[in-house]
């Protein structure tokens, strides 16, 4: 029960802080679930995040799995609710009154001002997952070379050509199956 309430607090808070999209809260989510509450290990967090990239739909629905590890099936659904509902409710209400502000110049200031902060948060997300999944000092050097290589290859491939990222991720999983042991 205590875990459920903690889950609710953490994920409802994250919901309302996710400016510019869900990826902005990955670093804080990692910090809360791994370091503060120890619901999952950092390796598990990285694995669960990447499972989320394999499933269709919004790419943050994997938060439910974090809830499952903390508090079983009730945790799964509670976290989904806590992570999605507050932000959706806010959008529902604000979209009612948004049109009144259409010509307010401060709206532009808000968007322009928040844009670089969102990018900084997304970079933090890359770092939060990458420090476990890409460059991990507990692993041998060759292992890190492979994982860094996967990441770099994906960045280059996606800038070069429009490929469905889910296919690339699956491909790296298959190669990893043979190589990363």
């Amino acid at each position: 029960m205590k875990d459920l309430i903690e889950l609710l607090n953490v994920f409802a808070g994250l919901s309302l802080m996710a400016i510019g999209g869900g990826t902005a809260v990955i670093p804080e989510m990692e910090h809360q679930t791994v370091t503060v509450h120890q619901w999952v290990s950092s390796t598990q967090f990285a694995a669960i995040y990447s499972l989320g990239q394999l499933a269709p739909g919004p790419n943050m629905t994997m938060v439910g799995i974090l809830g499952y590890h903390a508090a079983g099936v009730p945790g799964y659904f509670l976290v989904l609710f806590a992570f999605y509902f507050p932000a959706l409710m806010l959008t529902y209400i604000v979209s009612h009154i948004w049109d009144n502000f259409r010509d307010n110049p401060w709206r532009d200031a808000l968007q322009r001002g928040l844009a670089p902060i969102t990018i900084g948060l997304m970079l933090s997300g890359v770092y939060a997952v990458g420090k476990t999944a890409s460059f991990n000092l507990e692993r041998p050097l060759w292992f890190n070379a492979v994982t860094m290589g996967f990441g770099l290859a994906i960045v280059l491939l996606l800038f070069w050509k429009r490929i469905n990222p889910a296919l690339l991720i699956l491909a790296c999983g298959v190669i990893g199956w043979f190589v990363l042991r």
Binding site: L51, I119, L158, F159, G173
Partner: peptide, 24 residues
Amino acid sequence: VTAALAGVAAAAVGLLLQVTLKIG
């Protein structure tokens, strides 16, 4: 499973970085 997921996670980092660079 651990080996496959290590590959998947490494790839997911690449995807996240690419999206960040593209949007940024």
